[in-house]
């Protein structure tokens, strides 16, 4: 039996094209550098490297 069959997804991780990484659902976010841990439910993380509010997206990728 494949026990993974019974497993439900706890979260959805989505790559937004030319945009951030969206994560929603049951997850914990651990930001090691800034020593923060939270369970926000939904976040958008920067993927372009230009955000001034890392690790979050601040829409700098549009500039």
């Amino acid at each position: 039996m494949d026990e993974n069959k019974n497993k439900k997804p706890q979260a959805v991780v989505e790559i937004i094209e030319f945009g951030p990484l969206k994560i929603s659902g049951n997850f914990t976010l651990k930001d090691i550098k800034r020593d923060k841990e939270e369970s926000p439910g939904e976040i958008w993380l920067c993927r372009c490297g230009k955000s001034n509010n890392k690790p979050y997206c601040d829409e700098s990728h549009k500039k």
């Binding site: 497993k7 439900k8 997804p9 706890q10 979260a11 959805v12 991780v13 989505e14 790559i15 990484l21 994560i23 659902g25 049951n26 997850f27 914990t28 976010l29 651990k30 930001d31 090691i32 550098k33 800034r34 369970s39 976040i43 993380l45 690790p55």
Partner: peptide, 22 residues
Amino acid sequence: PVSVKVMIDGPVVIKGDFDFIN
């Protein structure tokens, strides 16, 4: 819960049971 770790000056590592839309 899915574990989302923002690594120091590095990537974000996601572990657990999740749907990945790309």
